[in-house]
Amino acid sequence: MQLSIKGRRRITLRATANHERSIISDLEFRKPAVKIAHWTIFGLLLLGTVLTIGPLLWMVSGALKPSIQIFNTPPVLWPSSPEWINFVKAWQQLNSLRYLANTAALATGAVALQLLVSATAAYALSKLKPIFSNVLLFFFLSTLMVPAIAYLIPQYFTVIHLPIFGISLIGSWWAIWLPEAANAFNIIILKSFFDTLPNELIEAARIDGANAWQIFTRIVLPNSLPALAVVSMFTIFATWKDFLWPLLVLNDPNSLPISPALYQQAIAQNSYQPQNVLLAGFVIATVPPLVLFLIFQRQIMRGVVTTGLKG
């Protein structure tokens, strides 16, 4: 995580090429051999992006095919008469709206709770520094060493019977929000950002009579919007990808987010969804995060770089 702090200071994504040289210098670049190599690599990269974008387009084209063309040899790249009806079917029969709304609501709650939990902790550890804060920081960070999957079972038990409170969270979205809010990466991201806020700013507010809460809400948070945005984005994508945990803790299929809901529709022995309708459902599930990503791509990709978090 220290790495990330260092990274954020040092690394800026190159917006326009050539303001700093890389392996090949500008002078070298004028040589014909280098030019040929450059365009060869360029072509190979283009071919490479066919491998990443191609499958997504294949999914869309499959969703538009009549059942009979879905497994055709040679492959039908684009159906002659696209069956847009498959999207209508997917929207209605797969209850897409409900599951998209569930996912959006889950993501909203997750963002709110994670920001609250991580930002307060990061503020305390960065600026208030109460007694034992170094020890606590270590305890938070040490959870990064513990892969979540290794305590899946006891975590499930905990959700069934929450100690002290003695209640069960099963079936409630809190069963997703609360465990997900224990995210040390967020604390690191925010703490390292708060560390860069000048102490003089906070001291001045204190002299003006502001208490810790006011400083937090009026000075620290408004000045940290980029970091808060990165945390929010990662939270939204993580919620959208969540699969196993919602399947375990949400007993009502109507409250599931889209991934496990689609899984049930694809696998359940009584759902019998034809392949093209399922594909249309997958396209529908992919569009919201895709749009969000295209809008916020700069911030997200910068976030990936600064945190070392791989999405």
């Binding site: 609501a105 709650g109 069960s168 099963i170 079936g171 409630s172 979205w173 949400l250 007993n251 009502d252 109507n254 409250s255």
Partner: peptide
Amino acid sequence: VGANILAAC
């Protein structure tokens, strides 16, 4: 979340 969750749990 509303009634949905209440009904579920």
